[in-house]
Amino acid sequence: MIRSMFEAFKNLFKPVHTVNYPATELVLPKGYRGLIEYDKEACIFCDKCEKVCPPGAILFYQPLEGEKEYRYNPWLCIYCGECVRACPKPQEALWQSETKQQSALKEDGANEGWFVWEAACKQSREDFKAAKIKNKSEESV
């Protein structure tokens, strides 16, 4: 009892354990799993990252002509790094940075905006397929 009172008195003069966040920056450890970053120049558009992503945070839009368009939802991402491990050109086309994602605001459209994009991607695939079949049948004629 006396010892615990002595401890309690000693604790009055100890430094605090907590950090004055956000005034003081948090120190992230080396190798912190942060945002996934992408380089369009190195990408070969194999879609492997899109297929392995557990939450489906990477989606490619397929236009009728030209390159696919990459889109990434940093708020849906779970930062597991599966996409980087699946990438045939890791560290060049796709890599994991140590930056921490800020919270989403309403205008970021983390949910609604992404659902629209998801539907657009699905539709673009179907359109592309239909156009391809149409082209083929026209060629054979």
Binding site: P29, G31, Y32, R33, I78, Y79, C80, G81
Partner: peptide, 8 residues
């Protein structure tokens, strides 16, 4: 693991 709670 690179993360505090969800280790993956």
């Amino acid at each position: 693991s690179g993360n505090r709670v969800q280790f993956d």
